[in-house]
Design a protein around this nucleic acid. Structure first.
Lengths: 121, 121
DNA sequence: TTTACATTTCGCTGTATGGCGAAATAAAGA
DNA sequence: TCTTTATTTCGCCATACAGCGAAATGTAAA
């Protein structure tokens, strides 16, 4: 039950749901998500930590960057069904579509430059 | 998005999830759920109100009693899928099984007597 | 080594939420 | 009508949580 509630609590925040949907396009580093949402890096980090604890994202370290991504086929059924559920419910949501557009612009930018700008703020 | 977040926030409380699973057996009045969880009637009422706002339960008034039940076939897809999800995830959960046992005992009792005891507390 | 930098952790603040009991509401019964 | 009673609403308290900035951590570059 604890595990399941970790998932529902993780899904009970709009920014975390938006983050999960943004990750559909592939892995993202913290500063890319930070840029997308316009929140403080520490805030984004905390959100990702909560998603990670719930098993809703995986993480991969590459040098100084940490990339987050949606879990693979080996993820628990309850997790995959949760992700399918929000995907289906919000695929054509205006906010989510806007995030997708914004994300495209972010992905065109050099991640290194992006992160530098984030850190200077 | 607001609608969807109403659902995820409603599911982010363990007692509300337990209530939804208890309702699988059929409609229940407030005092029956109160008896099941051992919380104050006002607390249960608030929880049911939140589930109702999210569209996760329907209600039916019969005299002084108000019966709550899971939504029917006409419920939005996103709601039905949410209910299927938690049902599948927690069908064999110890807490949920214990609730089922307890619920059987409660359903054997006369609702009128049950409610009277609740209100005297 | 030092410095730079991406991310996390920590401490704090304001707001949201679960819990209760008391009062309000609404419907049945005396 | 006047009680009784099932439920809701309201006001309160304690806790949980999202947000930030500053400090800490760990890794790469100089």
């Amino acid at each position: 039950m604890r595990e399941f509630m970790n998932i529902t609590k993780a899904l009970a925040d709009e920014n975390r749901v938006r983050a999960l949907l943004a990750l559909r396009k592939g892995e993202l580093c913290v500063c890319q998500i930070t840029e997308l949402f316009g929140l403080a890096p520490s805030t984004i980090s905390k959100h990702l930590s909560i998603l990670f604890q719930a098993g809703l994202v995986e993480s991969r370290k590459e040098g100084r960057w940490i990339y987050y991504q949606l879990p693979g086929k080996n993820a628990p059924v309850v997790v995959r069904e949760a992700l399918d559920w929000i995907q289906k419910a919000l695929a054509d949501n205006p906010q989510v579509l806007a995030d997708n557009q914004q994300l495209k612009k972010i992905l065109k930018q050099d991640p290194a430059e992006l992160c530098q700008r984030q850190c200077k703020k």
